[in-house]
Design a binder for these strands. Structure first.
Lengths: 154, 154
DNA sequence: GTAATCCATTAGCACTCCTAATCATATTGG
DNA sequence: CCAATATGATTAGGAGTGCTAATGGATTAC
């Protein structure tokens, strides 16, 4: 298979991803005013365990100051809490609160439901195609970020 | 096929799209400082023909004031031009300039190349799967936006 | 010809994002 | 053991996107 195919996939990705992002952002805004995709990614990471601030900045590919500001915003809303690490007092642990968990659940549920409705028009074959395609897509990008995270942190 | 599959696809989409968006944003920033995904979408639309400001706002699902501001930013960079419509003087036509065309080409080429590299690790079967999946994905969301654009413009 | 409508802009606010500079805490080397 | 260096978070300052509400023209409808 010629590499032209891969170029074509890139072009298509570049077209489609921002489109989907817009739909998702609009959905989120609608389901909980003031919430942004970044907040949901953040809360999604914190759902399973606490992380340090720098760790979160790396994960989301933003600078430390940006993460600090964003955390302050979510802290004011009562969705996350800061806690100084006791063993290394330079570190700050960020943990999700009950309210944060609730906000995350609500937005995820609303957006997921809306997406599911969009997908209900698909026939089974197309649905299967989409599912496999997404898996490939995730693997490609997840591998890229893991193998060379620094590339995306500057 | 049970609807659970479609719910699973939604969940996966919600996970993956922001990840890809981050990679793409980082790429764009790197290839041309100050440029944002929204700019590229905008210039991409203007590449083929001029649009009115309100038209662009609808297409990108942002409010008219937001679009007006963004156009002003791009105008200052010399990437687009404003022109009052002569037949209906309420309208403003936005057109891409040579410099805008060049900026668009540069960023698209850089980001596409980077994506293509990421994809070069894929075997042919996975590449084909991805290509089909993206087509389905685009159709789902494009249909949604066309059929009910108002839903995403508030 | 006045009222209603439509399109773009301005004003003002919240937020993300950046870099550079600062502060506190740990670690390392002489 | 203490000074220099490194590390993690924050503050300051600036650019940008996004919103709603209000304003100003231009057009259409009655």
């Amino acid at each position: 298979m010629p590499n032209t195919i891969r170029r074509e996939i890139s072009r298509r990705t570049l077209d489609i991803i921002p489109l989907i992002m817009r739909v998702m952002s609009a959905e989120m805004r609608q389901s909980l005013p003031g919430v942004q995709p970044g907040h949901i990614s953040l809360l999604g990471i914190l759902r399973y365990r606490a992380h340090t601030l720098g760790d979160l900045a790396d994960r989301l590919s933003v600078s430390a100051p940006t993460m600090s500001n964003t955390i302050s915003t979510l802290e004011e809303r009562g969705w996350v809490g800061r806690r100084r690490a006791e063993d290394d007092r330079r570190l700050v642990w960020i943990e999700i609160t009950e309210a944060g968990q609730a906000a995350l659940d609500k937005v995820e549920d609303n957006v997921e439901t809306r997406l599911t409705n969009l997908l209900s028009d698909l026939n089974d074959h197309d649905a299967a195609t989409l599912a496999s395609g997404l898996t490939v897509l995730r693997d490609v990008f997840a591998t890229a970020l893991e193998s060379d995270p620094k590339l995306y942190n500057e």
